[in-house]
Protein backbone atom coordinates (compact mmCIF):
# COMPACT_ATOMS: atom_id res chain seq x y z
CA UNK A 1 0.00 0.00 0.00
CA UNK A 2 2.79 2.41 0.82
CA UNK A 3 4.10 2.09 -2.72
CA UNK A 4 0.62 2.82 -4.06
CA UNK A 5 0.29 5.81 -1.78
CA UNK A 6 3.28 7.28 -3.59
CA UNK A 7 1.79 6.75 -7.07
CA UNK A 8 -0.17 9.34 -9.00
CA UNK A 9 -3.91 8.89 -8.90
CA UNK A 10 -4.37 8.60 -12.67
CA UNK A 11 -2.08 5.54 -12.73
CA UNK A 12 -3.91 3.96 -9.81
CA UNK A 13 -7.37 4.56 -11.30
CA UNK A 14 -6.33 3.22 -14.69
CA UNK A 15 -5.03 0.02 -13.10
CA UNK A 16 -7.85 -0.22 -10.55
CA UNK A 17 -10.97 1.59 -11.87
CA UNK A 18 -12.89 0.67 -8.71
CA UNK A 19 -10.67 3.12 -6.81
CA UNK A 20 -12.13 5.97 -8.89
CA UNK A 21 -15.66 4.90 -8.00
CA UNK A 22 -14.81 4.73 -4.31
CA UNK A 23 -13.25 8.22 -4.39
CA UNK A 24 -16.35 9.53 -6.18
CA UNK A 25 -18.52 8.20 -3.39
CA UNK A 26 -16.52 10.34 -0.98
CA UNK A 27 -16.96 13.31 -3.33
CA UNK A 28 -13.26 13.29 -4.18
CA UNK A 29 -13.48 13.99 -7.88
CA UNK A 30 -10.17 12.59 -9.11
CA UNK A 31 -11.75 10.69 -12.01
CA UNK A 32 -12.79 13.97 -13.66
CA UNK A 33 -9.60 15.86 -12.83
CA UNK A 34 -7.72 16.98 -15.92
CA UNK A 35 -4.29 16.58 -14.33
CA UNK A 36 -4.61 13.45 -12.17
CA UNK A 37 -1.01 13.73 -11.09
CA UNK A 38 -1.64 14.04 -7.33
CA UNK A 39 -0.46 11.13 -5.20
CA UNK A 40 -3.13 9.08 -3.44
CA UNK A 41 -1.39 9.89 -0.15
CA UNK A 42 -1.68 13.66 -0.72
CA UNK A 43 -5.27 13.43 -1.92
CA UNK A 44 -6.37 11.69 1.23
CA UNK A 45 -4.40 14.16 3.35
CA UNK A 46 -5.76 17.22 1.56
CA UNK A 47 -9.42 16.20 1.76
CA UNK A 48 -9.16 15.92 5.53
CA UNK A 49 -11.93 13.40 6.11
CA UNK A 50 -12.81 12.59 9.70
CA UNK A 51 -10.39 9.87 10.92
CA UNK A 52 -13.07 7.17 10.90
CA UNK A 53 -14.15 7.98 7.35
CA UNK A 54 -10.56 8.07 6.17
CA UNK A 55 -9.88 4.66 7.66
CA UNK A 56 -12.96 3.25 5.93
CA UNK A 57 -12.00 4.87 2.63
CA UNK A 58 -8.43 3.62 2.76
CA UNK A 59 -9.62 0.15 3.77
CA UNK A 60 -11.90 -0.01 0.72
CA UNK A 61 -9.15 1.28 -1.57
CA UNK A 62 -6.76 -1.34 -0.18
CA UNK A 63 -9.32 -4.05 -0.91
CA UNK A 64 -9.90 -2.73 -4.43
CA UNK A 65 -6.18 -2.82 -5.13
CA UNK A 66 -5.56 -6.14 -3.43
CA UNK A 67 -8.76 -8.20 -2.99
CA UNK A 68 -6.89 -10.88 -1.00
CA UNK A 69 -6.47 -8.36 1.82
CA UNK A 70 -2.70 -8.35 1.56
CA UNK A 71 -2.35 -4.59 1.79
CA UNK A 72 -1.91 -2.81 5.09
CA UNK A 73 -3.46 0.60 5.56
CA UNK A 74 -1.20 2.97 7.48
CA UNK A 75 -2.84 5.05 10.17
CA UNK A 76 -3.10 8.73 9.41
CA UNK A 77 -0.59 10.68 11.44
CA UNK A 78 -2.12 14.09 11.09
CA UNK A 79 -4.16 16.09 13.55
CA UNK A 80 -7.88 15.30 13.52
CA UNK A 81 -10.02 17.60 11.45
CA UNK A 82 -11.53 20.50 13.33
CA UNK A 83 -15.20 19.86 13.91
CA UNK A 84 -17.19 21.55 11.15
CA UNK A 85 -17.64 25.21 11.93
CA UNK A 86 -15.21 25.34 14.83
CA UNK A 87 -12.26 26.79 12.95
CA UNK A 88 -13.23 28.91 9.98
CA UNK A 89 -10.78 30.37 7.47
CA UNK A 90 -7.92 32.33 8.95
CA UNK A 91 -8.22 36.09 8.31
CA UNK A 92 -5.91 36.18 5.26
CA UNK A 93 -7.63 33.23 3.59
CA UNK A 94 -11.03 34.62 4.53
CA UNK A 95 -10.04 37.69 2.57
CA UNK A 96 -9.36 35.60 -0.53
CA UNK A 97 -12.65 33.72 -0.09
CA UNK A 98 -14.45 37.08 0.01
CA UNK A 99 -12.76 38.07 -3.24
CA UNK A 100 -13.98 34.77 -4.72
CA UNK A 101 -17.55 35.86 -3.95
CA UNK A 102 -17.24 38.86 -6.26
CA UNK A 103 -15.48 36.84 -8.94
CA UNK A 104 -18.25 34.23 -8.77
CA UNK A 105 -20.87 36.93 -9.29
CA UNK A 106 -19.11 37.92 -12.50
CA UNK A 107 -18.71 34.28 -13.58
CA UNK A 108 -22.47 33.82 -13.19
CA UNK A 109 -23.02 36.60 -15.74
CA UNK A 110 -20.72 35.17 -18.41
CA UNK A 111 -23.32 32.89 -20.07
CA UNK A 112 -25.60 35.89 -20.60
CA UNK A 113 -22.71 37.97 -21.91
CA UNK A 114 -21.71 35.11 -24.20
CA UNK A 115 -25.24 34.85 -25.60
CA UNK A 116 -25.15 38.39 -27.00
CA UNK A 117 -21.79 39.01 -28.59
CA UNK A 118 -23.22 39.81 -32.02
CA UNK A 119 -24.37 43.31 -31.09
CA UNK A 120 -21.93 46.15 -30.56
CA UNK A 121 -23.28 46.75 -27.09
CA UNK A 122 -22.99 43.07 -26.17
CA UNK A 123 -19.41 42.91 -27.39
CA UNK A 124 -18.60 46.10 -25.44
CA UNK A 125 -20.03 44.61 -22.24
CA UNK A 126 -18.00 41.46 -22.78
CA UNK A 127 -14.85 43.56 -23.15
CA UNK A 128 -15.61 45.25 -19.83
CA UNK A 129 -16.14 41.81 -18.33
CA UNK A 130 -12.71 40.76 -19.60
CA UNK A 131 -11.28 43.92 -18.07
CA UNK A 132 -12.73 42.94 -14.70
CA UNK A 133 -11.23 39.48 -15.01
CA UNK A 134 -7.80 40.84 -15.93
CA UNK A 135 -7.73 43.48 -13.22
CA UNK A 136 -9.67 42.07 -10.30
CA UNK A 137 -9.56 38.29 -10.70
CA UNK A 138 -6.04 38.13 -12.06
CA UNK A 139 -3.89 41.11 -11.09
CA UNK A 140 -5.54 41.67 -7.73
CA UNK A 141 -6.58 38.19 -6.61
CA UNK A 142 -4.49 35.57 -8.42
CA UNK A 143 -1.36 37.65 -7.91
CA UNK A 144 -1.79 37.40 -4.13
CA UNK A 145 -2.09 33.63 -4.45
CA UNK A 146 0.84 33.20 -6.79
CA UNK A 147 3.27 35.73 -5.38
CA UNK A 148 2.47 35.35 -1.69
CA UNK A 149 0.25 32.49 -0.53
CA UNK A 150 1.58 29.66 -2.71
CA UNK A 151 5.15 30.60 -1.78
CA UNK A 152 4.48 29.16 1.68
CA UNK A 153 4.12 25.69 0.18
CA UNK A 154 6.32 23.30 -1.74
CA UNK A 155 6.16 24.37 -5.41
CA UNK A 156 6.51 20.73 -6.43
CA UNK A 157 3.21 19.79 -4.81
CA UNK A 158 0.81 18.69 -7.52
CA UNK A 159 -2.05 20.65 -6.01
CA UNK A 160 -0.06 23.89 -6.31
CA UNK A 161 1.02 23.07 -9.85
CA UNK A 162 -2.62 22.35 -10.77
CA UNK A 163 -3.76 25.70 -9.36
CA UNK A 164 -1.07 27.54 -11.33
CA UNK A 165 -2.03 25.64 -14.48
CA UNK A 166 -5.65 26.72 -13.96
CA UNK A 167 -4.58 30.36 -13.65
CA UNK A 168 -2.53 30.08 -16.85
CA UNK A 169 -5.37 28.34 -18.70
CA UNK A 170 -7.70 31.13 -17.53
CA UNK A 171 -5.37 33.76 -18.95
CA UNK A 172 -5.38 31.81 -22.21
CA UNK A 173 -9.19 31.98 -22.39
CA UNK A 174 -9.22 35.70 -21.63
CA UNK A 175 -6.67 36.33 -24.37
CA UNK A 176 -8.58 34.03 -26.74
CA UNK A 177 -11.88 35.79 -26.02
CA UNK A 178 -10.34 39.24 -26.56
CA UNK A 179 -8.78 38.18 -29.86
CA UNK A 180 -12.03 36.58 -31.04
CA UNK A 181 -13.96 39.73 -30.15
CA UNK A 182 -11.45 41.83 -32.08
CA UNK A 183 -11.90 39.51 -35.07
CA UNK A 184 -15.70 39.73 -34.63
CA UNK A 185 -15.84 35.97 -34.18
CA UNK A 186 -18.73 35.82 -31.71
CA UNK A 187 -18.85 32.03 -31.56
CA UNK A 188 -15.18 31.66 -30.65
CA UNK A 189 -15.42 34.47 -28.09
CA UNK A 190 -18.47 32.83 -26.50
CA UNK A 191 -16.65 29.49 -26.33
CA UNK A 192 -13.75 31.09 -24.49
CA UNK A 193 -16.01 32.95 -22.04
CA UNK A 194 -17.93 29.78 -21.20
CA UNK A 195 -14.77 27.72 -20.88
CA UNK A 196 -13.35 30.38 -18.55
CA UNK A 197 -16.48 30.25 -16.44
CA UNK A 198 -16.34 26.47 -16.09
CA UNK A 199 -12.63 26.48 -15.35
CA UNK A 200 -12.69 29.21 -12.75
CA UNK A 201 -15.89 28.05 -11.04
CA UNK A 202 -14.32 24.66 -10.48
CA UNK A 203 -11.02 26.27 -9.47
CA UNK A 204 -12.63 28.51 -6.85
CA UNK A 205 -14.63 25.59 -5.47
CA UNK A 206 -11.40 23.61 -5.07
CA UNK A 207 -9.74 26.52 -3.30
CA UNK A 208 -12.65 27.30 -0.98
CA UNK A 209 -13.46 23.74 -0.01
CA UNK A 210 -10.19 21.89 -0.15
CA UNK A 211 -7.04 23.90 -0.77
CA UNK A 212 -7.53 26.80 1.64
CA UNK A 213 -8.73 24.65 4.56
CA UNK A 214 -5.72 22.40 3.99
CA UNK A 215 -3.43 25.42 3.87
CA UNK A 216 -4.96 26.76 7.07
CA UNK A 217 -4.24 23.46 8.77
CA UNK A 218 -0.62 23.68 7.71
CA UNK A 219 0.14 27.35 8.32
CA UNK A 220 1.54 28.28 11.71
CA UNK A 221 0.04 31.16 13.68
CA UNK A 222 3.13 33.20 12.87
CA UNK A 223 2.71 32.53 9.14
CA UNK A 224 -0.96 33.53 9.28
CA UNK A 225 0.04 36.92 10.73
CA UNK A 226 2.78 37.32 8.16
CA UNK A 227 0.42 36.45 5.28
CA UNK A 228 -2.15 38.92 6.57
CA UNK A 229 0.48 41.67 6.58
CA UNK A 230 1.76 40.76 3.12
CA UNK A 231 -1.77 40.74 1.66
CA UNK A 232 -2.42 44.16 3.17
CA UNK A 233 0.82 45.42 1.67
CA UNK A 234 -0.04 43.97 -1.75
CA UNK A 235 -3.53 45.51 -1.64
CA UNK A 236 -2.10 48.89 -0.67
CA UNK A 237 -0.37 49.03 -4.05
CA UNK A 238 -3.79 49.19 -5.72
CA UNK A 239 -5.83 52.36 -5.92
CA UNK A 240 -8.82 51.69 -3.60
CA UNK A 241 -11.02 53.66 -5.98
CA UNK A 242 -10.10 51.34 -8.84
CA UNK A 243 -11.00 48.29 -6.74
CA UNK A 244 -14.27 49.94 -5.72
CA UNK A 245 -14.99 50.57 -9.42
CA UNK A 246 -14.46 46.87 -10.17
CA UNK A 247 -16.86 45.96 -7.38
CA UNK A 248 -19.41 48.45 -8.64
CA UNK A 249 -18.97 47.16 -12.19
CA UNK A 250 -20.01 43.63 -11.19
CA UNK A 251 -23.08 44.94 -9.38
CA UNK A 252 -24.04 47.24 -12.30
CA UNK A 253 -23.64 44.47 -14.83
CA UNK A 254 -25.83 42.18 -12.74
CA UNK A 255 -28.54 44.79 -12.67
CA UNK A 256 -28.27 45.59 -16.35
CA UNK A 257 -28.44 41.95 -17.44
CA UNK A 258 -31.31 41.28 -15.05
CA UNK A 259 -33.23 44.22 -16.55
CA UNK A 260 -32.59 42.94 -20.06
CA UNK A 261 -33.72 39.45 -19.12
CA UNK A 262 -36.88 40.90 -17.57
CA UNK A 263 -37.56 42.98 -20.69
CA UNK A 264 -37.24 39.90 -22.90
CA UNK A 265 -39.52 37.80 -20.71
Amino acid sequence: MNKDLEQNIKAIISSFPAVGDILNEYKIGCTSCAAGTCRLKDIVEIHNLPAEEEEKLMGRIALAISPDGGLKVPKSGRKPAAAPGTLKYSPPLRRLVEEHLLIKRLLALLPRLAADLGSEEGAGLALSGLDFIRNYADKYHHAKEEEILFKYFDPDLEVIKTMLKDHAAGRGHVKGAAEALAAKDAAAAAAHLLAYRDLLSEHIKKEDEILYPWMDRNLSLNQVGELFGKFAEADSKFDPAAIARQEAFAADLEEKLADEAAAQA
Partner: peptide, 21 residues
Protein backbone atom coordinates in the same frame (compact mmCIF):
# COMPACT_ATOMS: atom_id res chain seq x y z
CA UNK B 1 -3.24 48.71 11.59
CA UNK B 2 -5.21 45.46 11.33
CA UNK B 3 -4.02 42.18 12.76
CA UNK B 4 -5.44 38.63 12.95
CA UNK B 5 -7.09 37.85 16.30
CA UNK B 6 -7.68 34.35 17.53
CA UNK B 7 -9.94 33.60 20.47
CA UNK B 8 -9.34 30.51 22.58
CA UNK B 9 -11.67 29.62 25.43
CA UNK B 10 -10.35 27.41 28.23
CA UNK B 11 -12.75 25.30 30.27
CA UNK B 12 -12.64 25.16 34.05
CA UNK B 13 -11.80 21.47 33.65
CA UNK B 14 -8.63 22.40 31.79
CA UNK B 15 -9.71 21.63 28.22
CA UNK B 16 -9.90 23.93 25.20
CA UNK B 17 -13.59 24.69 24.74
CA UNK B 18 -13.26 26.57 21.46
CA UNK B 19 -10.68 28.04 19.16
CA UNK B 20 -11.67 30.43 16.44
CA UNK B 21 -10.57 33.46 14.48
Amino acid sequence: RKVPIKSIVVGIGGTIKSEEW
